[in-house]
Amino acid sequence: MTLKQENRRLSRRLGVVAVVMFGFAFALVPFYNQICVALGINNLDQPSVVTNTQVDRSRTVTIELDSNAHNMPWRFRPLVGHVTVHPGEITMVEYEIVNVREAPVTGQAVPSYGPQRAGEYFQKVECFCFTQQTLAAGETRRMPVVFVVDPKLPRDVETIALSYTFFEVAGRGGKI
């Protein structure tokens, strides 16, 4: 084989390596998600498995409900501002969204908690944030959140702010 052919062969092989590594960047996406599932981190939009249903009647926790729509044509609000619950008690609250755009819109809600460390004790059994929501033009929808506050919640936490932010899923055009 001449030098020219050898050079070409080596450069082709190195080119394949570069292309494979480009693909590897995209392969990191499912890999990362699997790691998160396996290690149980970052599972905001997964239903919790409630193991302890013992109700702790010795104290109450106030859950403050908050809602935001991030650059979205949606009116999004909780039906009540706050509820008071005993840890371990199964509770349901409702939120309402109104799509004010003359077209269907798809959105995804992302929950967050204040204080942040309360998040791991706030177990959502049913939540509209588990799936994307698509509303037809002008549609109004009420959606439940069913949750249990883990009785292991540290005693100094007396109030938990549950805040949902809806983001528009761009490019979806209201289709699921």
């Binding site: 996406v29 959105g107 992302v110 983001f167 899923v169 490019g171």
Partner: peptide, 17 residues
């Protein structure tokens, strides 16, 4: 520009990724 959500939390993406 193309509606993917690799890093956009709204579509199930993750900025930490």
């Amino acid at each position: 520009h193309f509606g993917t959500t690799f890093f956009n939390a709204a579509g199930g993406g993750d900025p930490v990724l």
